[in-house]
Design a protein around this nucleic acid. Structure first.
Lengths: 113, 113
DNA sequence: GTAACTACTTACCATATGGTAACTACTATA
DNA sequence: TATAGTAGTTACCATATGGTAAGTAGTTAC
């Protein structure tokens, strides 16, 4: 295989990695919610008004496994859990900004016309 | 709702729009294949070796509907069809570069460790 | 002791996504 | 007339994704 084709396959692989991290109905809402500050389980649930506890729990676990967010348990009464973005999670901002920028462009080109 | 919350909801909406365009198993491979030049149906199928004609046809239609690609019919014998990126499709490059960059970073942080 | 607040978990169901294999339709060439 | 090269389509199936409703578990306040 040529160098060009190898580079192309690599680009495809890593961009698919990125999509796997952010795809699904609730990943972006959760990440964006946490950009605006650390939050507890119930706070995220109230922030994203239509997510069920099952989905929130499931998606938080997935994001934690990918080291996008941290889960911190506080021994307060009652017990509270705080979720926050890791450095890796924070490093998504530029990429997310590009998703937003292109999304605006797309909306102007398609949905507007 | 506060201005901040409104902006946040808008960012979420447009970034989800972007994801809807590029998500799925075959969208990125097709787009990346066409970045390297216009191609016929059979050429794309050979380029992405494991895609079935059904999936290729289905995803090309979806990309065409979103004005990411053009479909041009040539009255040659036998009939050939050429697919190419539209200006809107070409405008994805910067965003795709960010997906790639973050994917490389992610791979170094997670899969490497 | 009962209700309320925290953060989930479990069972079950419906729809979306993607895969396989075979078939269609048109034309040219042997 | 049969085969091959275009570009798809169709029927059927399996898995993935997400939703609903109810239940769990620990602690505190009434």
């Amino acid at each position: 295989m040529s160098q060009k084709k190898k580079a192309c396959k690599y680009n495809l692989m890593v961009s698919r990695d990125t999509l796997e991290v952010i795809q699904g109905k609730w990943r972006l809402p959760i990440i964006i919610s946490l950009i605006h500050g650390n939050k507890r389980f119930g706070e995220i649930q109230r922030d994203i008004s239509d997510i069920s506890p099952k989905m929130l729990s499931q998606e938080l676990k997935a994001l934690e496994m990918n080291k996008i967010i941290n889960r911190t348990l506080y021994d307060s009464m009652p017990v509270t859990v705080e979720y926050s973005l890791t450095p890796l999670g924070l490093s998504m901002e530029k990429m997310l900004d590009e998703l937003i920028s292109w999304g605006i462009h797309f909306r102007n080109e398609i949905i507007g016309k």
